[in-house]
Write a protein that binds this DNA or RNA. Structure first.
Length: 491
RNA sequence: GGCGGGUUGGCGGAGAGGUUACGCAGCGGAUUGCAAAUCCGUGAAGACCGGUUCGAUUCCGGUACCCGCCUCCA
């Protein structure tokens, strides 16, 4: 069996991955707070841990991996949006409006992440469905002396957990020395964090031994991981920005509430995303969502491929250049697929992936190296010629791509969908133009007068259509800037 | 201020103490009505200063610069 090696944030070393139970490998990843569309940075952990999920399924079997990713649907940003809608005249209670907002956001999230080729996790628990477990865990922490009630809040007593700071390599004393935050006066210690806080009438709340209130942010992951994966499980993932304080606090809560468990054995953190070399932020004006890209005709697999070029532990840069290169590769693979497979609709599962690709992924998710092997494989398929359809080499190539979550291999798919949505009957009109082009070209090749052909070609290109001519014929592919209106004159 | 990470050829971006990374772009050639695609070939690197070593881009130390987190932003 393939040995997977992963860089464990706890030890800062690459370690052999040994699951607690190979029959049920368990992974928890921090999911989104559902208050708005996912931005491009949100997509990184989704893609990174989707690759890991696929690898684990490949190695241990699809039925032997449990992947939990939560939805945080208790949050002040959600409350603020619901309150804004209510004040704007929306009907329903605040709870209704909050529910409406989170349901809407979750649907968006699913649509956007599906477009990126990410598999749905085994379970996607919502924080609001586990309030009871959070209350129980909070009560247990109080009973054990790890938490205390103060001023309507319940706070975790950081000093009661000696290991606090181990994951993120910080010492409590250093942090206090360098702290720049105002400390709530009712805290015993500046580092103590909230497990439960009171809710006002304008905020969602649940009954608890400490009055009507809502959970702090960190407790939800501890409670849901415990409920769905047990006191000890294999992998916990998330963005590097969550390492402190979120993951540190999760560990403290879980370790103290379940002293016999050891929570997550391997902690994985993905580095952050940048855009053209800069942090993505609203103030820099380079902030955009996954949906923004999709709406501009950038296919989900293009986005995915750009992400896979960079190791998950390195900062990743989204650039126009990277996007262009990714499109180029997908075009190549798409051509190979059409030339080397007997059936375009054939479904690949990744089961027959090249062992070298599996080995690259098993080496701490080296997607970049996996792609290198795929480039070489593609080159071999290219040279081998198209005579033999479904050759083992070609099948291995597409199985390998499928393992990386790349299976449609059509960078224009999204643009085409948009074109269709714009009302252009693509299926009818483009083939018509294609036949016309072919006819013109055939006669031009005899007469040696190519002016008509070139005129049509120029017009097509101006309308955002890619024109590919080969001995086999003419192919018209609408690109991202495809504008059907410009084609009307040509018919 | 505290903690962590990074610095590789024109650009992106890996692995390995000694042997071609790879991709994109470039250049030369083949093919092509033109173009695209494809094929063959090709140049180019390891921030700086020391140390360990027969040998370092790869290990150790220092310097400079960059970045992230410390603020319920993935």
């Amino acid at each position: 069996m393939t040995t997977i090696r992963l860089t464990n944030s706890t030890t800062r070393k690459k370690e052999d991955f040994v699951p607690i139970d190979p029959g049920n490998v368990r992974m928890y990843v921090c999911g989104p707070t559902v208050y708005d569309r996912a931005h491009l940075g949100n997509a990184r952990p989704v893609i990174v841990f989707d690759v890991l999920y696929r690898l684990l399924r490949h190695v241990y079997g699809p039925d032997h991996v449990t992947y939990v990713r939560n939805f945080t649907d208790v949050d002040d940003k959600i409350n603020a949006e619901a309150l804004r809608r209510q004040k704007a005249g929306a009907s329903g209670t605040l709870e209704d409006l909050i529910h409406e907002r989170t349901e809407e956001t979750i649907a968006w999230y699913h649509a956007d992440m599906d477009a990126l080729g990410a598999l749905r996790p085994s379970a996607e628990p919502r924080a609001t469905e586990y309030i009871g477990q959070m209350v129980a865990m909070t009560a247990a922490l109080i009973a054990r002396g790890n938490a205390y009630e103060a001023n309507g809040h319940v706070l975790f007593r950081v000093r009661s957990y000696a290991e606090y700071g181990r994951l993120s390599g910080r010492s409590v004393d250093d942090m206090i020395a360098g702290a720049r935050v105002e400390v709530a006066p009712f805290k015993e210690d500046p580092m103590d964090f909230v497990l439960w806080k009171p809710s006002s009438g304008e905020e969602p709340g649940w009954p608890s031994p400490w009055g009507r209130g809502r959970p702090g942010w960190h407790i939800e992951c501890s409670a849901m991981a415990q409920e769905l994966l047990g006191e000890s499980f294999d992998i916990h993932g998330g963005g590097l920005d969550l390492q402190f304080p979120h993951h540190e606090n999760e560990i403290a809560q879980s370790a103290c509430a379940h002293p016999h468990g050891d929570f997550a054995h391997y902690w994985l953190h993905n580095e952050m995303l940048q855009v053209e070399g800069k942090k993505m932020s609203k103030s820099l004006g380079n902030f955009f969502t996954v949906r923004d890209l999709l709406d501009r005709g950038v296919d989900g697999e293009v986005i995915r491929l750009v992400f896979l070029r960079t190791n998950y532990r390195r900062p990743m840069d989204w650039t126009e250049e990277a996007k262009r290169e990714a499109i180029g590769h997908l075009i190549t693979w798409n051509r190979l697929k059409r030339h080397h497979l007997s059936d375009d609709e054939r479904l690949f599962t990744g089961a027959g992936a090249d062992p070298a690709v599996v080995a690259a992924l098993a080496d701490d998710l080296n997607t970049h190296d996996a792609l290198k092997i795929i480039y070489e494989l593609a080159s071999k398929v290219e040279v081998s010629g198209a005579l033999e359809k479904d050759s083992s080499l070609a099948l291995r190539l597409f199985e390998s791509l499928a393992l990386l979550g790349l299976s449609r291999l059509d960078p224009h798919h999204q643009a085409r969908r948009i074109a269709i949505a714009k009302g252009f009957a693509l299926a009818v009109e483009l083939p018509k133009l294609q036949s016309k082009m072919e006819a013109l070209r055939t006669s031009a090749q005899e007469s040696k007068d190519f002016t008509a052909v070139d005129a049509l070609k120029t017009a097509l290109i101006a309308a955002g259509v890619e024109v590919r001519m080969s001995k086999a014929g003419v192919e018209l592919v609408p690109g991202p800037d495809f504008d059907p209106a410009k084609l009307e004159a040509l018919q």
